[in-house]
């Protein structure tokens, strides 16, 4: 927990719970570059990917959220194009 903090929660719906769980598993391993400034937690609830962000300020939060969304875009494109190849 940070002293001053900015919070954000994203709910990203997938087609199935398996897809949501894959997305969470893919995102989890990568460590944050500045764990003292930015924390992120991934989980899947049903067919939703739930991402919780915690950060020291809005600027760091914005950059962090944007990076995570970039990765999620790749995951969704991969699932869309390559699941039933």
């Amino acid at each position: 927990m940070f002293k001053k903090q900015s919070l954000e929660k994203l709910n990203i719906p997938f087609e199935t719970s398996k897809q949501a769980s894959i997305a969470a598993q893919v995102l989890k391993p990568d460590p944050q570059l500045r764990p003292e400034e930015f924390k992120v937690d991934y989980s899947s609830q049903g067919s939703d990917l739930v991402v919780n962000f915690q950060s020291v300020d809005d600027r760091v939060l914005r950059v962090g959220v944007s990076n995570v969304i970039d990765s999620i875009k790749t995951i969704i494109e991969t699932i869309d194009e390559l699941q039933d190849f």
Partner: peptide, 15 residues
């Protein structure tokens, strides 16, 4: 490196 490994992990879990 990271942007490619994301796709690699997804493919691995999908297939």
């Amino acid at each position: 490196l990271h942007s490619v490994v994301i796709a690699a992990r997804t493919c691995s879990l999908l297939w």
